[in-house]
Design a protein around this nucleic acid. Structure first.
Lengths: 184, 184
DNA sequence: ACTTTAAGTTTCATGGAGCAACTTATTTTT
DNA sequence: AAAAATAAGTTGCTCCATGAAACTTAAAGT
């Protein structure tokens, strides 16, 4: 029972640390939100966010360095710099919206105005969700962690065990998720 | 053109700041991931994460204080404390997975093992997505920000304007999203 | 020419992060 | 029963990151 989560000790192979290296910095998401909202210039960010000048400078540089923002000098006014989201930056939209929605759900009195809507019908979006490979919306109950070598192997075991300790290396953990499932 | 984003100045009514107040702290998401992965005890987090003792103590306390983790003394071993995710904590799953997937997509060499799968078929999950109210997956192109009073009003305007400056107060901004759309 | 604006950099005071050692309460071992 | 080990902290100290304010440089506006 202690051994079952032994493989997790080497679970540095996860995108989260890499993501947090950039976006874990304070202000990173706030700057990103401002970018999503159409702010492009240093002084705009400055007055909008209430961040210190030097910190903003530093954070923008880091976001540019990490390919989340592009830094384009304005052709018409050569004092100005335009900071714009790259594709990599846009790909943070689901993470940002998910965070935002969570904050909204549990925050005291968040009214949200303006509202993020589907352009098609101009109605508010639903909750950002974890999706199966074939498009079903998944809850915590529907998730499991399996060894890479055991992908596709159902619980009843339509495929035989790989080498290694048998019975182990299958579902690694998520016992907490399961417990939450049965509790719900 | 400068005025069109004027309302954003008061855009403190967004869940993001509230979310970041808790989860913007360094280590918060790493602790959360560990929790998702079935770690429950102080010394487990400590050796798994490589975080300093005092910081871990502090962060756990804050997560408990914010209702993301529950702090249960173990009945069988009264030295031990169990830290477990609350429902509020589980609701951070989409945000965490989205971040993780982003880090995986752009991180150097992230292999991801064990793999997060759909329990049903044990196949890897798809990208965490922004969903419309009726279940369609939305991309950045499909999003708009509208005034709360103008919800449901299509671009062609099946509903008449509210009071206030006409033409304004409709789609607030997202010009950057649009530009990215036309560029794609 | 003078002033203003934009985007920074520099300086300095403060707060949070990290390391190591210490504490307290509870098992386990001898 | 006494000694050692374990679990979960706390305390003291150092140092880097954060933040406020002033200064810098270059380009526009008037």
């Amino acid at each position: 029972m202690g051994d079952i989560r032994e493989p997790l000790r080497e679970l540095t192979e996860c995108g989260l640390p890499q993501a947090l290296e950039v976006m874990g910095e304070r202000w990173a998401f706030m700057i990103l939100r401002a970018s999503f909202n159409g702010l492009h210039h240093f002084e705009e960010f400055l007055s909008e966010l209430g961040i210190a000048r030097n910190i903003l400078s530093n954070r923008l540089a880091k976001l540019v360095e990490n390919g989340i923002l592009r830094r384009d000098p304005c052709p018409d006014d050569r004092r100005k710099i335009e900071y714009r989201l790259t594709d990599k930056g846009f790909d943070l939209l689901p993470a940002m919206v998910a965070l935002r929605q969570w904050g909204q759900k549990y925050g005291a009195e968040v009214v949200e105005n303006p509202v993020l809507v589907d352009e098609r019908d101009r109605l508010p979006i639903g909750p950002t969700s974890i999706i199966s490979h074939d498009g079903r919306i998944l809850g915590p109950q529907d998730l499991a962690l399996v060894e890479r070598s055991n992908l596709g192997v159902r619980a009843d075991g339509s495929r035989a065990d790989q080498e290694g300790s048998p019975g182990l290396g299958d579902v690694i953990d998520l016992e907490s998720l399961r417990r939450a499932k049965s509790a719900a």
